[in-house]
């Protein structure tokens, strides 16, 4: 049972939370300025590392607040939790991996 330390409520079992996938993927400022390929990147592509991952959680059964966490997707160990207005604490890059033009 993962125990996730909500920045507002403290450590709670994972069953109290909703998962939100990769963190730091902001909604584009101007969607109309994006090509279809770029828009597809935003809609469908997220990093999927086997290792350290910045991700979002909502404490849905508690304070209902969203926050970020850095967790190892292989060991499931949570190394950091931080509020949405804080920078990713482990210093790793925020931006998703750039992707080449998609193939056929």
């Amino acid at each position: 049972m993962m125990v996730i330390p909500c920045p507002f409520c403290g450590p709670r079992n994972e069953t109290e939370y909703t998962y939100g996938g990769q963190a730091h993927v902001a909604y584009p400022e101007n969607p109309d300025a994006l090509t279809d390929e770029q828009w597809a990147q935003f809609l469908f592509y997220r990093d999927n590392p086997r290792g350290s991952y910045a991700e979002r959680w909502q404490h849905s059964a508690g304070c209902r607040k969203w926050f970020n966490a850095v967790r190892n997707t292989h060991t499931y160990e949570i190394t950091h939790v931080y509020r949405l207005d804080q920078a990713r604490p482990d210093g790793l890059p925020k931006a998703p991996l750039a992707t080449k033009e998609v193939g056929a």
């Binding site: 597809a40 592509y45 997220r46 999927n48 590392p49 086997r50 992707t99 080449k100």
Partner: peptide, 17 residues
């Protein structure tokens, strides 16, 4: 393991594990 491999090859696939 596809994302791990794709990352090595410099592209992403729209999957989550």
């Amino acid at each position: 393991y596809t994302s791990v491999l794709a990352d090595m090859a410099g592209f992403r696939v729209p999957i989550q594990s």
